[in-house]
Write a protein that binds this DNA or RNA. Structure first.
Lengths: 383, 383
DNA sequence: TTGTATGCGTTATCAT
DNA sequence: ATGATAACGCATACAA
């Protein structure tokens, strides 16, 4: 129950006007407590009543009237623009605070023809890799007064198309895209319309767009070299969907590694998954069913690798019976004593680079398209 | 280079008007190729030029002029509202398609006084638990024409406050909140302003708001009972930050479990972490340093549990030397043969329930505040 | 069935 | 230094 001696505020702002809370009778307290039938303390109750109907509904006109000045002046105060005397400024700010006014960002956007929003289109919102990228970007955007409109395409080009339409209707000023591989024309069109597009993680050949991605070819090659150095000769390669650039590059890097070592490519050792867990399990089964199964595996992403281990378990194979090198961070690898080495990616760094580039581009930097490459490190398991 | 016989489209839509691409001379091709100095194939180039400057800049007036009707008619076609003859409708849609017009969602929002946006405030964007919730909600929202404005508070009440201010300025129609525990007044105010608030995962006592959360007390009690049944008597309890409702409830449930079994609460066995990995490692160290260390541990979330295992490794303890029950999904648990049981949470289900409730509320459902509770299941490890 | 005109809440241009 | 007012792009009440 509200007890009047608990009040930290001097006034209750009710529909009947201001009531000095310190002088409230217990009876009055009872009435306010009835108000919405919740038992909460005085401070909260006070604010509950005060805010009611205010927040969100007030316009610059209300403030102007209350402050006895024009809307232009209010606007100038809000934006720190033009001249406005200190007295009036103080007074206006006081009124704004008192009435708890918040400017309408939608109207502002319309007038300024600037949405101050950035679209970010990702293939999987639940994947910490992408969300670590996203978080770093958001952090930077928020600082600069931009906000992110997220859409998850679930690797589906049709959803991606919907997402892109949606975002352009929202008049995003820039687009961050880890694409499905489709919708090239639309992406090109968006870029052509003056919306800055930054590709992240995944490239589009033939599209001249800012890109921040990892050197998949180099890292995959290094992974194969590592396995060869450990005397493996039959290496299973579990690749991803070839519509995605990272999968193509990782496959290519692996092949280069084998080639340079003078090891003939064995087609039966190259299987294509779709970056999902199940496809990893399936790939392992196929590999182990070969007359001469591999002694080591290179897997193009972490989900498939997880599937590989689940597969080993299902087949009754010891988890260290096969040496594995996998792209992507695998949390549990630090707990394993198994033969699992990972190619650590840097989602946070990628996000920061994208964020910086984004802010630069939004700031009007029209210089040549950039192509930033990060080199992920191979982390061998500790024996 | 663009070769004119590669063209799949009949026309190039340039600033000089339509140019039939099939009749382009090689010289003309060279010119177009110079256009932005990118070597791409004819089809993409075509679209590049076509879209340039169009998308995003056109207004309803342009369409009206081009179609020879009034803006009102265009609006009616766009919204399927009011009467409009079939002929005109067809014609207008054709013009829209031809010019690639997309309505300005910002202007529409201002006019309709509906942002069609929903704020979602989460403590950690990189946590798959929350993102699984978010994804289900987003899915539903997208279907219904709403979009989500995400903000990550990083468990910081100050950032949360900023986020809430930001979102109300964007005139969100509803707010989904997994809160830090602070900002009660502001949350109450938002609700009071007619913005529907739905709490998810974490409750706020005294705030009468729709809530969808898990039965942490029940599940924690069950966890303790499970351990007791396995003859553990010294059970370490690693709790989370008590400002967060889930942490309070999990602690309370554990205590109830012990009490009902007639086991005295040993204060030295109850340590408080902060839901982070490091704090889990730290907690384990403290527990194992006791004169009489626990034989089992109940951990209030998955991150801390991971820390616990890292700690065991650091201390040189076998990972199965201590029986553990942990809240939250731990991916690797399915690969472990260790004594790790988990309380599986249902983020996707939570998201779906929130999504349904949200759409109902946005549809004007003003019925009594709802309090939905999901019961997470204890999944014992397989010996 | 279609068109005209007004206003949504701002900002910015022009006066004063 | 401050105020009046015209847009921004769209939806809608009202006229025709």
């Amino acid at each position: 129950m509200l007890k009047h001696d608990q009040s930290l505020y001097f006034y209750l702002f009710t529909r009947r006007g201001f009531v000095p809370a310190r002088t409230l009778t217990n009876q009055a307290c009872a009435i306010y407590n009835e108000y919405d039938n919740v038992n909460i303390c005085g401070v909260i109750r006070l604010i509950l009543i005060k805010e009611e109907s205010a927040l969100t509904k007030l316009t610059i006109k209300d403030i102007a009237k209350e402050a006895g000045v024009s809307t232009a002046t209010i606007s100038r105060v809000l934006n720190n623009s033009g001249y406005v005397s200190n007295d009036i400024k103080q007074h206006v700010m006081e009124v704004i605070r008192k009435l708890n006014y918040q400017p309408n960002a939608i109207a502002r956007s319309l007038k300024q023809e600037k949405s101050r929003s950035v679209g970010i289109v990702l293939p999987d919102m639940t994947n910490p890799y992408f969300m670590n990228i996203a978080r770093a970007i958001q952090h930077r955007c928020f600082q600069e007064g931009y906000h992110l409109l997220f859409v998850d395409t679930e690797e589906n080009p049709d959803k991606e198309k919907e997402a892109l339409d949606f975002l352009t209707e929202k008049r995003i000023e820039a687009l961050i895209l880890a694409g499905t591989g489709g919708n090239r024309e639309q992406i090109q069109a968006i870029s052509g319309a003056g919306i800055r597009v930054i590709l992240v993680d995944r490239r589009y050949s033939n599209l001249k767009l800012d890109t921040v991605a990892e050197d998949n070819i180099y890292a995959s090659k290094a992974a194969i070299e590592y396995l060869i150095e450990k005397n493996h000769r039959r290496i299973g390669i579990i690749g991803g969907p070839q519509s995605i650039s990272t999968a193509r590059e990782r496959r290519q890097g692996a092949m280069i590694g084998l080639e340079e070592a003078g090891i003939a490519l064995a087609p039966e050792l190259m299987v294509e998954g779709d970056y999902t867990r199940d496809s990893g399990t399936d790939a392992l089964r196929r590999l182990m069913a070969l007359p001469e199964p591999p002694t080591a595996i290179f897997s193009a992403n972490n989900e498939m690798t997880f599937g590989v281990y689940l597969g080993m378990q299902q087949l009754g194979l010891p988890l260290d019976s096969i040496e594995v090198v996998s792209f992507g961070n695998l949390e549990f690898s630090s707990l394993f004593r198994h033969k699992l080495s990972v190619i650590m990616q840097n989602p946070h760094d990628i996000g920061e680079i994208v964020g910086d580039l984004l802010i630069r581009r939004l700031g009007g930097d029209d210089s040549e398209t950039e192509n930033q490459v990060l080199v992920p490190k191979l982390v061998p398991y500790e024996a």
